[in-house]
Each structure stands twice: as C-alpha cells, then as structure tokens.
Design a protein around this nucleic acid. Structure first.
Lengths: 198, 198
DNA sequence: CGAATTATGGACTGGATCGTCCACAACTCT
DNA sequence: AGAGTTGTGGACGATCCAGTCCATAATTCG
C-alpha cells in the first residue's frame, strides 16, 4: 500500500558522501546535499533524519566499504606484505595528486569533528580497531611468508603502520608532491617492516 | 597623534587561537571570538581583517611558536634523539588525554580547510618543511652521538618521523587511551630510528 | 474504481552569521 | 586647551542555514 521510493538510497549516500568529502561537514549545506542528491527536503529528512544523522550514516557506510575492500584485498593479495604496502601508499595511486589532496573522509572528519561529536570519535575508534585487526592478520601472514621478521609483534607493527598511513594522508592534504609523498610512505614502510634475519 | 590600542595584540591572538583550536574554524563564530577576546567588532576587524585573515594570522603565529620551541629544545636537549622522541610523543604528555583529544591546531586545520583554502595548505607545507629541517638536524646529531645508525638517510627518516607524529595526533583525537597512544608512538619510534650497528 | 497510505518538494520560519557602518570616546600634538 | 586623528563597540542589514510543515502526486489494496 505504500508508495515506493523513487530514489536509490545507496546512490544518494554516495552522492552525499562525495559532497561531504570534498567540502567537509560544516562547509556543506543541506541545500548542497539536496542538489547533489536530487531529492527534496521532505524526502531527504524523511529517509535519513537531520544533517548529523545523515553524516554519520555516510561515514559508517564509507568505513564499512573500506574495511570490506581491505579484507578482500588481503585474500586476493599474492603476499600479506603487499596489502600493508598498498594500505600505506593508498593515496599515492593517483599521479595527479587529486586523491592525495582529498584525503580520507574518516581522517578529515576526525580532525574537524571528533572533539565536539563523540559519535564520530567512537566510529573512528571502531573503524581503526578493525583496520588494525586486518593489518595484524596481513603482517602475521607476511611473517609466515618470510617477508617480515617473525619475532616482531604483529599487532604493534600494525598500529605503527596505521599511524604512518594517517601521517601520509595528512601530508598529502597539504598538496605535497605525489612523488615526495610516495617516498615518505616507502621510507616509513621500509623501516616499520623489519626484514627477517635470513 | 593616534589614540593607542587598548588591547594587547598577542593576548588576543592567543585567546582566539584557543577558541579555533577547541572548536575548529567553521564551528567558531565571530561572536565567539569577540567574547573570548573581549573586543568589539570594530576593533577586531580593524586589527586583523575578516575571519579568514584572522585565522591565518593565528595559524602562522602558532606554527612560528612551535618551530621556535622545537629549535630551542634541540639546543637544550642532552641528545639529539631526545628531541625526536619528544616530538612524536608530544601529545601523550598529558595523562588525562585532553591534549591528545585537542590535537594540533595545524593538523586539524589541514584536514578541515586545506582542500578549499590554498593559503592554509601553503602554510602547512612551509611549516612542515621547517619541521623536517629541524628533525633532520636532530637526527644528524643523533648519528654523531651514536644513537642512530649513521648510514641512514637523516632526511628520509625525518619525514617518516613527521608522518608517524601526524598519525599519532590523528589517533589521539579519536579518544584512544593515552597509554595505548604512547605505545603506538614508541613502537613507531623504535622501528623508525635504526639503532647503530655497534 | 475508490480509498488509504506514503513519498515528494517547495514554502516558510526562526535563528544565526558575517561584515559594514557610524556615533562616541580617548588620546596626542600644537 | 583645542583640534584632529584613531580606537571602540554596538546597531544594522543582507544573507544563509537547518529543520518543519503542508498540499499534492503517486501507488497499492480492496
């Protein structure tokens, strides 16, 4: 009996996500979101609630998609260490630097909102905990595969790798050259991943 | 012939800086800034221009003060490696975690504004370049003092150390326990600073 | 075909925000 | 002491923004 929705919820979330990603939370107005989603006010508010709820929904979807991709890549990667390298250098894939300047939606959101929005901070902790778990698995696999020192504490290295990635992302947003950025990531990686004693 | 200012410019900059630091750029209103500075609109606009100019002034002062402190600490530090460790663990000094949650004004600003404010991005590049210079000096001294492998490229290590610090700052803003945060920083440090061959 | 239910999108409101402007106060130099 | 110059702070306007509300349209079930 109900009239069916005329829009695809996921498509709206993606459009809204890109707008938040490009402009940041505060600098994005509801009018912007209505424009990029193509919806009217009643529809957007009816489906997602207010601006903050919509943002949190977008952020959770973004995090979930990233985690899923990370797990899939770990399964498909030839070696565990490949995932770790990909992870740290993820922003340097685009040679134009556009991806590096845009950064990561989660990292940007933490810096803008974590102090005043506890739910954003909690979502970040949840997401990073999960990332550390995947990275730890990847590192343990790399240890079995002989690419990383088996005596290293995989969990500790995973956290250091995460910190390095967040640092590379932050530097990328300053507009640093992609070549330099890549070098920074590789430099950090080569030192964070202790080579096996052989 | 001119009537003298009734306020101390540096004192105003500090008050305004704290407000921007606590709330972020967009979330801070000019009314907030008038309140914390104690000035009227004419005085604040007359002395610093509009909100963006005022913010940039505050950010530059903040960066300059940080750099000055870094250089002074390098001179007074017993060993070069001490400065590097202090730098990465700077946010973990407050056991309550308040400093970690507040993070770094520059790092926060990059994430919120770098994409849309080229002057903020440029200021960040300038500041981080200078930080890398100081860190490189500290590492070279540490190499002479036998605390760091003399074969390592000090400039490369300096950039990796900066990335690690930015990562620790980002994680600190999520509200991560200070003990865990400290462990992450120490883990990254122990791997980024190659011990001398002995 | 008719009734009931829900999506839709624009109108509307109350409030906040940034920046300008102006009248007054305070101070300095002659 | 007076004239001129500059700081001061509140009033004001124009804009923007988030969220509510309602009349209408579209769809499904009886």
């Amino acid at each position: 009996m109900p009239r069916p929705r005329e829009f695809d919820e996921d498509r709206v979330v993606v459009a809204v996500r890109d707008e938040f990603w490009n402009k940041g939370y505060a600098a994005t107005s509801m009018d912007d979101l209505l424009r990029v989603s193509g919806l009217g006010k009643g529809s957007l508010y009816g489906a997602f609630g207010d601006k903050h709820s919509l943002f949190l929904r977008v952020l959770r979807d973004y995090d979930d998609a990233n985690l899923l991709m990370l797990r899939e890549r770990l399964e498909s990667a030839p070696r565990g260490v490949d995932l770790v390298r990909e992870f740290v250098l993820s922003m340097t894939g685009d040679p134009t630097g556009a991806a590096a300047r845009r950064g990561c939606l989660l990292a940007n959101s933490i810096a803008e909102l974590a102090a005043s929005a506890p739910d954003v901070a909690a979502e970040a902790r949840r997401s990073y905990d999960a990332v550390v778990t995947v990275l730890t698995e990847a590192l343990e696999r790399a240890q079995r595969e002989g690419d990383v020192d088996p005596d290293a504490n995989a969990g500790e290295v995973a956290r250091a790798v995460l910190a390095a990635q967040l640092g590379v992302i932050a530097l990328g947003r300053t507009g640093m050259d992609v070549e330099v950025l890549t070098a920074v990531g590789q430099s950090a990686l080569s030192r964070l991943l202790p080579a096996p004693a052989q």
